[in-house]
Amino acid sequence: MALSAEENGRLTGLLSEHAERVVQRWTEVATASLRGRLSQAELRRQVQDLHRSMVEAGRGGSFDLESESAGELRAVLAELSRGRARQGFTATETAVSVYGLKDVLLELLESDADTALRDYVAFSSLVDQMGLFTFESFVRTREGLIADQAEQLLELSTPVVKIWEGVVAVPLVGTLDSARAQVVMERLLQTLVDTSSPYAIIDITGVPAVDTQVAQHILKTVVAARLMGADCIISGIRPQIAQTIVALGIEFGDIATKASLADALRHVLRLTGAETARRQPRRES
């Protein structure tokens, strides 16, 4: 589908000869499809960029998007798609800005009937290729946006709060899958460092179910915190969850568990209080 050298030359000629008219008509076609959601001045600038990079690619020897001379063209197309994706335009509205060039080319070619049809078919397959490229860039940007939002959502849903001098708490609410458990773990540990808190309370009152994987994640967090020099207390274990934990044979070992967040805080305060009142023995036996 690559253009022959001859067609390449003709298209480059056409584009540079009628530069002003191409940009003008192309902008008009694109504006119509976007129904005024983008200013004409901005569209015109984008079309000018596209036009300029196309002429550049043509003079460089090939319009083919895979080729080296089309590097600038690729960049302009990708930038256009990214912009549209972020501004909330649909994929069609984005692609039409490129497909608009077909109408313009058709108008230009009508005057010279001889080779017109053959050229038009060749040119429009090039425009199709450009359109598809825009579409792909568009989808990629959208996917990136979705991934970012998912991450933001994760962060929002796992607040780590300092509730006392030297004590931070993570109230977990909702289903805890592997990805979320990992985020919680990292954030909790980082907060311990940032606030220099030697105690963390993981409250799972709002967690509807605990399976082996989730329990493993919690256990790993506790062990990692210990390696860093902090202690974790798990609070809010509901009866059903206690039963699951036992049924699954998960060993919580010597990890402190408390019925409620309040109990856990009291437990920590007693520990720290005891430490200051009477230097509690800490040397292991």
Binding site: Q190, A224, L227, A230
Partner: peptide, 23 residues
């Protein structure tokens, strides 16, 4: 010890038994 290091050590299976740690 950095959080990422602690997480990695747990995964690696190294518990550093007998070592006392502080933040």
């Amino acid at each position: 010890m950095r959080p990422a290091v602690a997480i990695t050590l747990v995964e690696l299976g190294l518990s550093l038994n007998g070592i006392r740690t502080a933040l």
